[in-house]
Design a protein around this nucleic acid. Structure first.
Lengths: 147, 147
DNA sequence: GTCATTTAGATTGCGCGCAATATAATTGTG
DNA sequence: CACAATTATATTGCGCGCAATCTAAATGAC
């Protein structure tokens, strides 16, 4: 395919990393439409999912679950607080720690969010089997390279 | 695993999209070290690979190959120009179009970059087969959802 | 040729993602 | 108890990623 490049190793079309990178961007892009209704970005949606599953956890615990550091979580959580979806309160036992409490509005958003996984699964071009396979490969990759 | 969430659909641990997203971020992060020596970010490295394979192409053609729009490519290419790796020249036949010409420095960077795919492949936790599988799934996903 | 349409690229604005650093609270050590 | 080390979060700065908008050049329709 490539005329000027005799070795294929530096060719983006051959690199699984580039495919991974592009697919992730495309995925986030396709979530945008679905999340417009909830007024959430994809990373914000991830944070909300964590809190819907486990309200009241610390910033640190949430950061570990979504694999983000405080440079990403702090401003993101401030934006969610600004939208009135949660409150950030200092932990009494450990004043360093900051606990995240969903507001009523934040909790009520969960019911509207139930549609998101359904609609995304519907428009996914992958079968359930392929999706599971993709997940397993991505998990293996992430776990090993960030170790 | 989750105590407060009786349905699994809104749980990030079950979502292949979250795995894809996290794996892509981890991958870019792991490239950072390898690319430090070349003074390139991962997206800049992608652009350079395209130009190493096909010097002189337009901004539009490059954007299509790396799947980025002008809001991303324009500042990225200006940074590469600022580093002295390429020049952006208006096309004589079509003044709207902007052609990208590698400088000698930009061309010579290719030889040093040959090490990158090798070292990344070495530290990859995936077998060649798994990597191919991941690429196929990502390509299928991206092609269909951005159609 | 005139004018609407299309096209290539640039600009603006916002939200990540993350390295590096700072701050303040807590814990560990002697 | 003093004080070094650790820990949780916040801040700063930079480079994407992309929607929305703008400009200017080229193309198409009549």
């Amino acid at each position: 395919m490539s005329q000027e490049n005799n070795d294929a190793s530096l060719c983006i079309e051959n690199q699984s990393c580039f495919s991974l990178y592009s697919a992730a961007n495309a995925m986030v892009r396709s979530y945008r439409t679905a999340l417009l209704d909830l007024d959430l970005t994809y990373p914000q949606y991830l944070a909300m999912m964590v809190l819907w599953a486990e309200d009241g956890i610390s910033v640190k615990a949430l950061g570990e679950k979504v694999h983000m550091d405080s440079g990403t979580t702090t401003p993101l959580l401030k934006r969610l607080e600004g939208k009135g979806l949660l409150e950030r309160v200092r932990c009494k036992q450990d004043e360093r720690s900051c606990l995240l409490q969903l507001t009523d509005e934040g909790k009520s958003l969960k019911s509207r969010a139930q549609e998101i996984p359904k609609s995304m699964a519907c428009q996914s071009p992958l079968t359930q089997e392929e999706s599971d396979q993709l997940k397993a490969l991505c998990d293996k990759l992430r776990l090993k390279i960030s170790a």
